[in-house]
């Protein structure tokens, strides 16, 4: 059985927000290390991978590996019934056909305990073997900055070309009616406070669909920083780390011309 108690429902709400438009159904793989979700979107262009460490929960117990097949739309609805700061407990039995969620209010004036149950399903998902990659470039930047850039450029065109060079990281969008490019220079330590970093072994140029990057940026609510890992001709890794775990996205590049 699984019993996992989170100190704030907001974490799950934000995670669902950051996943549900890419994937409609997914297995939450629970084991003693924590809860993991890995799924590709229908078009096999993007993959999302979420990990919640057992240590990130107030209480965590999972006796044996348990895949919970979740319809993310249904879970989103059930989570809407929780207040952001409610304590949230997930429970499932070994038959994994029902997920129960309990929300406990933290407010001092009343003890509210709400209980919900949702049906689980059998999901036969592809398992992707993600190879360990030594990336040629690694860029860390404020997640709000990344959100702003991809949202702005998505107004102009469908794609963005990302160029990492000695100069810094440049985002270029060539739309039919307008184009734009944004350069973030290596030296962003003006205030003495390090806002980001660019590490590069060799120059990288890759082109991606902006609609996916805009979607990934929903994770900005989970982490103040985002890390972009790139090598020529391999999928981009977009990684957001937070106290209780991480969410990572892989995105296949556009190729040829």
């Amino acid at each position: 059985m699984l019993e996992a108690k989170l100190s704030e429902a907001a974490l799950l709400k934000r995670l669902l927000d950051a996943v549900k438009e890419l994937v409609s159904d997914a297995n939450f793989e629970c084991n003693e290390e924590g809860i993991q979700l890995q799924a590709m979107d229908n078009s096999h262009v993007a993959l999302v991978s979420v990990k919640l460490y057992a240590s990130g929960f107030k209480r965590y117990r999972c006796d044996r590996p348990l895949p919970l097949g979740v319809n993310l739309g249904s879970l989103t609805k059930v989570l809407k019934c929780a207040k952001d700061d409610d304590i949230c407990t997930l429970k499932a039995g070994d038959d994994a056909d029902i997920l129960s969620l309990t929300y406990e209010a933290k407010s001092a004036y009343a003890d509210r305990i709400a209980e919900y149950e949702m049906k689980l399903m059998d999901i036969d998902a592809d398992q992707l073997g993600i190879p360990d990659t030594d990336y040629d470039a690694s860029v860390t930047m404020p997640s709000s900055e990344f959100l702003r850039i991809v949202r702005d450029l998505s107004l102009l065109g469908e794609s963005v070309r990302i160029e990492v060079s000695k100069e810094g990281i440049r985002f270029v969008s060539d739309g039919e009616a307008a184009n734009g490019n944004i350069l973030i220079k290596q030296n962003a330590e003006a205030s003495g406070k390090k806002k980001g970093s660019i590490e590069m072994n060799s120059a990288v140029t890759l082109t991606f669909s902006l609609k996916y990057l805009v979607n990934f940026s929903k994770s900005s609510s989970l982490s103040k920083k985002v890390q972009l890992m790139m090598s020529n001709d391999v999928p981009l890794l977009v990684s957001y780390a937070f106290n209780q775990g991480h969410i990572r996205y892989y995105l296949a590049p556009k190729i040829g011309d």
Binding site: H44, L128, G129, P131, P235, A252, K254, D257
Partner: peptide, 14 residues
């Protein structure tokens, strides 16, 4: 324009 590749061609699917 450039064509969209798929993850399957980079990652092994089983």
């Amino acid at each position: 324009g450039a064509g969209q590749s798929r993850l399957d061609s980079f990652f092994g699917v089983s």
